[in-house]
Design a protein around this nucleic acid. Structure first.
Lengths: 399, 399
DNA sequence: CCGTCTATGTCCAACTAGTGAACTCTAAGC
DNA sequence: GCTTAGAGTTCACTAGTTGGACATAGACGG
């Protein structure tokens, strides 16, 4: 710890290695740990004993088929992580364990006009309720991931201009939640978390680079590069919604003209249908009607798809991700929107980049963001956090 | 080495730690090494002895002011790296040492019609000549970086369709050079290397994320994200030249219409001036004339700048780099082109992303790519390469 | 000119932690 | 029931770092 290049640090690294191997695989026998980590069986034996004594790990005496394998897994109460997602209309919370399993998940409506304080309070209550439901001790919370629907200044942690939750501008969500829950909280915006969620649990499994396009009230993208969220130095990467498609197009809320958003986001698209389909139409409704065959809605959705495709083509030329996942309400439209997107990409992206790109609908729907928050908590939590917690908890027992 | 979590690996890590510390600082006393690496004085003493015996490091018996400090530095012949850049018309080679110093650099014209074999032979000769000029032993070459003006398939290492060097398509530059020089060769395209070069020695110093836009016969971008070249899963990231600016614009060589390249690249821009300024105009010539006040050339350059600015705005929205460096012949135009670029960026990028973006001309001119190749060799060469080389060279002396 | 002081580098004994080999144990297969 | 093979443990051994003692040599003050 304080001796950064010495045996103790080596030992620590080996502990983490084992914990990580177990966490990723869910459960392993000691021999398997030895093979995957490259450590010798003897070392693994010692480390497992230490972790077991520390309470980090559980050893189920007899389990799988073989001769006498004892399977090692992270002990259920070794730690849990929490994901919180403030959406436009909903508050969602998920509790998971370190083995990437979701233990509990719940959502409740959130009033748009609610003050930020009310929102944080509600979140705290819901988190507490879910923790209790899982029956795990509160002190075992290893980290919290928090999703907010707007730009976050990474350095100060303040929520920037967000037209979606007006009363929340200037608040510091991470600090607020940390104050309430007493644990480190990692924040990010909904698009980035959606990307992470789909990456870990959804349509992005097995891929290292992915762009998650979320079309809802606005259009945003979350970029995952080499397994990590890419935010850019200023934290505003992924603003695909404000790519210019037509220099003399409609004026966008950002002040420019012809942004992708003006062709694809709900706030600009829905008015097109209001004269023919009524004024209380939602994106969800449009999608439903389109699936039922309504030609106007189909046309609008296809047009949206084509425009998104243009934006994705640019993204593809610049970043060349291996997968693009479409999220938000629009994803429910399936091939009605994906087809035009693919067509546009094929037309506007350079062939070599377009060829190996797959465009898929999100597999998690509205859960992508909470689960992403969970994933954020898991990934930001070094495996050492876990060790620290349990070791400090365990030392008193020895002295 | 084969035991990835054991003492020997720890020792190795500590060796690398010391080598890196010395490499970065240029020269340190043992006590300083101990402080910066966090290792104990005793360990440093042992490691330095080992490195000295291995020939990796030189100890100058008495040097600096103090009591009796012995300053440790990488031995001059501990290793050198080589950068090779195949340009459109030139072949450039640079030789540097591990302290990021350029020891020798030379360029010679390369005939466009030359076969790839001729090109590689010429490169080999030039490399040999420069190595001799520095007086360092050939066996001390720790790595070679190679720049080629076209897309490289990272997996197979073959050069893709490149309209610039027609006879070279399908060759494997890395293998060719490795065969000739007998050292590992790392290849990348010129835009990526230009980015790396400007990052390490030029206008990108001190920044971790940078986009290098190279405007020449075509338009390409090299992206550096978090200090490393970002190539994308398929290796074709950074194709800013084929971003669509106008869906009904001129047909581009890539098959699409209205690509940035059709508004900015030499092959499309020069014809505009040929009726008024003659047919044998080059981009360099246009820039010279513009600087001398020729209004037509000024206008053309400003227009090019505006279009590049549109592309950069998209790049900026998506990736939010902290710096954009303009390279290629066009960069010589200075404010004549940078002004319009900045103006376009300000107009089309979202304000928060544009505000913190700086657009600078490259500081290295045509040398950016060779130096980038050098930087590539340096960065790809783990400090362990150095150890391996010298250790295998040193072991016979002990047995 | 000399003694003291201080920081440097080295040596040694102590200690930490990983490894190979030998050993025990259990269930499967014949 | 006997053999077998893989799992996990124990033990002696070894590699490698560390703290502290020690030697060294310039700087400083008298």
């Amino acid at each position: 710890m304080e001796t950064p290049g010495s045996q103790s640090s080596l030992h620590r690294a080996n502990l983490e290695r084992v914990v990580r191997a177990v966490r990723l695989a869910g459960s392993l026998t000691q021999a398997e740990i030895a093979r995957t980590t490259g450590l010798s069986a003897a070392t693994v034996s010692n480390i497992v004993r230490e972790l077991k004594d520390g309470g980090t790990v559980e050893v189920t005496p007899t389990s799988a088929g073989g001769r006498r394998a004892r399977s090692v897994s992270l002990s259920g109460d070794a730690g849990i992580v929490i994901g919180v997602d403030f959406g436009h209309t909903h508050l969602r919370v998920a509790v998971g364990n370190l083995a990437h399993q979701v233990l509990a998940e719940e959502s409740e409506p959130l009033d748009v006009d609610a003050s930020s304080t009310q929102g944080f309070d509600r979140a705290e209550q819901l988190v507490s309720r879910l923790i209790e439901a899982t029956g795990v001790d509160r002190t075992k919370v290893a980290g919290v991931g928090l999703g907010v629907p707007g730009p976050i200044d990474l350095e100060s942690g303040t929520l920037g201009s967000s037209a979606i939750l007006p009363g929340w501008i200037g608040t510091r969500p991470a600090e607020e939640m940390k104050g309430r829950l007493g644990v480190t909280v990692h924040v990010d915006n909904d698009a980035n978390l959606g990307a992470l969620g789909e990456m870990v649990w959804g349509s992005g499994r097995g891929v290292r680079d992915l762009a998650y396009i979320k079309v809802a009230s606005g259009v945003g993208a979350g970029l995952v590069i080499d397994g990590k969220i890419y935010r850019g130095p200023g934290g505003t990467a992924g603003e695909i919604g404000h790519i210019t498609l037509d220099e003399s197009g409609p004026v966008c809320r950002c002040g420019n003209r012809g942004c992708l958003e003006t062709f694809a986001a709900a706030r600009y698209v829905l008015p097109l249908l209001q004269s023919s389909h009524g004024t209380d139409l939602t994106m969800e409704g449009v999608v439903r009607l389109a699936r039922d065959g309504d030609p106007g809605c189909r046309r609008v959705i296809a047009d949206v798809g084509r425009h998104i495709g243009s934006g994705v083509a640019n993204l593809c030329n610049l970043l060349n991700p291996s997968r693009v996942v479409l999220g938000g309400d629009l994803a429910e439209a399936g091939e009605l929107v994906l087809g035009p997107i693919r067509e546009s990409v094929g037309r506007y992206a350079i062939p070599s980049a377009a060829r190996q790109l797959s465009v898929l609908p999100g597999a998690l729907g509205g859960r992508a963001e909470v689960l992403g928050a969970l994933a954020l908590a898991l990934s930001e939590m070094g495996d050492s956090t876990l060790l620290d917690g349990t070791l400090t908890a365990a030392t008193p027992a020895f002295t």
